[in-house]
């Protein structure tokens, strides 16, 4: 799916936990998420912590959209 969207000319970033899967599928810009069932907010943490993590990682995804890349790239996250 990510490939079809990129093929159509859109700059796209895939946020996924299983980065090896995203790579194999052919995503070019990738940002890791924390798990499969809750990619952007661990329910065992507080609402504030979940929000901070989500706000940060979505921010990294936005950075990824504005970054020129030469090959498949996984963008680093801090929280």
């Amino acid at each position: 799916m990510v490939k079809e969207i990129e093929k159509a000319g859109f700059t796209v970033v895939q946020m996924a936990n299983l980065i090896p899967v995203a790579k194999t599928v052919g995503a070019n810009r990738m940002v890791p998420t924390i798990s499969i069932p809750y990619p952007l907010g661990d329910p065992s943490t507080s609402k504030e912590e979940q929000w901070e993590l989500r706000y940060h990682r979505v921010g990294v995804a936005l950075d990824a959209l504005t970054t020129e890349i030469e090959e498949q790239k996984v963008f680093d996250v801090e929280i």
Binding site: L18, P20, V21, K23, T24, V25
Partner: peptide, 8 residues
């Protein structure tokens, strides 16, 4: 379809 979800 792709035989395994990751390949190497």
């Amino acid at each position: 379809s792709q035989p395994l979800v990751t390949l190497d």
